[in-house]
Design a protein around this nucleic acid. Structure first.
Lengths: 237, 237
DNA sequence: ACCTGAACACCGTTCAAGT
DNA sequence: ACCTGAACACCGTTCAAGT
């Protein structure tokens, strides 16, 4: 009963090894990260996923750091920039954008960590920068100050995601929290009067949403009230 | 002419392998870092330095993360806390302490990075926290807000050291700066009007001392002007 | 031009066995 | 209790050789 027609589909069972491309590599890398964490996104593991050898990846990616940067750029396209053009108070809209950015990194803390070191420079990142500049302009922040401010805001958001996220998923997260809590509780009122007075409850009190929103508020208020130091001349270099 | 007295000093030439202690391990680790960078502070490299096997270190140190934390704690004892009790404007004194803290991490950026993940909890760190709480109190910041503020300030200082320091010494530092500069310069005025208007000069303008001092000023101003959100009740949990 | 296997020079951590 | 060698299960990156 073997029908005469040879199956049109490829000889192999697997959906035909797709050609290697930079884009395909980055996509696979994001998938592996999603499934197994950034720790597992190694050249070797990724090559295995793509059914090739690790050396082959070096045709498309210079090194591991560059791979991480490319992954981040892909994720940054998901930042919700709609508040930039929405109506309403510019501060609230700015906080919304910052929250969207932070939330994306929050669940990929290891990637946030790499963003701290290898600064992204793709179009998705530039769009976020542009959006924040627009919001600061809405708030009347002078352009020169905005240039510094956008960096400050994104840097803070990135590093917070790194810190919080990794701590949440660290193997000894509990141990470390305990270590700090024990240290704080054991702080003698003689040596550390203020720490003792506040107690661990206050000092460890949730880095929850309230606290991050407060921190964004601090930054925005501070930016509004702190001019850049005067340059020697008013004309640019 | 061989004198009859056998030399009193030990049989071996080397100054007698010192007994392994936690303290000795951490000291050696700091030395290796100073000389070869944190990347080289591995269990194996460190064991070699101490003339033993890597497995032996695990008697004194739980894992690599704990080792890094111990190294950081040792360095934090060098933070200059004298401005805490000096005369003068509390803001200036606070900025001095923050600068001292940042400067120490600045030249050991990889360690700063680990501090972002594994929060220190030794006495040296607690002293820094206590000092900053005292300064904030001098400035009239309410205690509850100070508890959040000290975290915000130290977090920012730590992450800035991470970012700047590593960028300075990264292998492709120039490449990355170039990448961002090229991206910024290439930003079309249609898609990215504000980036194009500012230009790369403004956006990349020095993360020098001026800028960090400005950022500290932003934080302090913001902290003074941003109350913590009201808890449901005024009494603690 | 792209892809590969094999090699080089490393890692952290565990564990049974010694002292 | 402390220390060790050896093993396990990995890494990133390079390079000569193939197609």
């Amino acid at each position: 009963m073997a029908s005469s027609a040879r199956p049109v589909v490829s000889r192999r069972e697997r959906p035909a090894k797709p050609a290697l491309t930079r884009e395909g590599i980055v996509t696979a890398a994001v998938e592996v990260m999603q499934a197994e964490g950034l720790d597992r996104v190694t050249m070797r593991r990724l090559a295995e996923q793509l059914d090739t050898g690790a050396a082959s990846l070096y045709v498309y990616v210079r090194n591991t750091a560059e791979l991480h940067a490319a992954m981040l750029e892909e994720l940054l396209s998901q930042v919700d920039l709609s508040p930039v053009t929405a109506p309403g108070d510019w501060r609230d809209r700015l906080i919304k954008v910052l929250w969207s950015y932070t939330a994306i990194l929050f669940v990929r803390p290891a990637l946030a960590q790499s963003a701290l070191v290898t600064r992204p420079s793709g179009p998705a990142y530039l769009s976020v920068v542009e959006g924040i500049l627009a919001l600061l302009s809405d708030g009347g922040v002078p352009p020169g100050r905005s240039a510094w401010a956008v960096d400050l805001l994104l840097h803070f958001a990135t590093s917070t995601a790194t810190e919080q996220g990794i701590r949440d998923q660290a193997v000894d997260a509990e141990d470390e929290q305990d270590a700090l809590a024990v240290a704080l509780r054991g702080a003698s009122p003689e040596s550390f009067p203020r720490i003792a007075a506040l107690g661990p409850e206050e000092l460890l009190s949730g880095w929850g949403p309230d606290r991050l929103t407060w921190a964004f508020g601090v930054l925005i208020h501070g930016i509004l009230g702190t001019p850049r130091p005067e340059p020697d001349t008013t004309t640019g270099a």
